[in-house]
């Protein structure tokens, strides 16, 4: 079971935040096929948000074929987003950590690291496209 949290200053609508958090958990293998999502009532009681927000998020996940609602029981994961690349995550994470350590050593602060990372990420995306 995963727990949701909301960032009210992110500017991202609450329902999208829930969708993102489920997709994120699916991608990282935190949620697998057959796992149950928290019930609407649980999410609502925890976050003090409108039930329709949660329903909307779950419906969107259902439309994307990631979860299925079983009436009276709950909502279950039907497909995972963690593909075969999951095995490659760990070595990649180690490389990235090493890179961060290097950047730190070179005297970059958080903001510069983030800027460098994002801009490189963007250029790399363009190269692929």
């Amino acid at each position: 079971m995963i727990e949701f949290s909301l960032d009210s200053r992110s500017g991202v609508s609450p329902y999208l935040q829930v969708v993102h958090q489920v997709r994120h958990a699916l991608r990282l293998g935190l949620l697998r096929e057959g796992d149950q999502l928290p019930t609407v009532k649980d999410v609502v009681a925890r976050l003090a948000i409108n039930p329709n927000t949660v329903l909307k998020a779950y419906r969107e996940l259902e439309r994307d074929g990631l979860v299925a609602a079983r009436p009276g029981v709950g909502t279950f994961v039907t497909r995972t987003l963690a593909d075969t690349s999951l095995a490659a995550h760990e070595p990649l994470r180690r490389d990235l950590r090493r890179w961060f350590a290097k950047a730190r050593l070179a005297g970059l602060d958080d903001e510069s690291i983030e800027a460098l990372f994002t801009s490189t990420f963007r250029t790399a995306q363009q190269d692929i496209a």
Binding site: L6, S8, P14, V40, K41, V44, A45, R46, L47, A48, I49, N50, P51, N52, T53
Partner: peptide
């Protein structure tokens, strides 16, 4: 607000609530 939203989820009731503080309502109102 947690109690109120839980009741909305459970009993499918409609709610009309007033406030002069918008941030209180941001999460709960649709």
């Amino acid at each position: 607000l947690q109690t109120l939203m839980e009741a909305v989820a459970e009993y499918e009731l409609s709610v009309l609530l007033s406030s002069h503080v918008v941030s209180d309502l941001e999460r709960v109102c649709d």
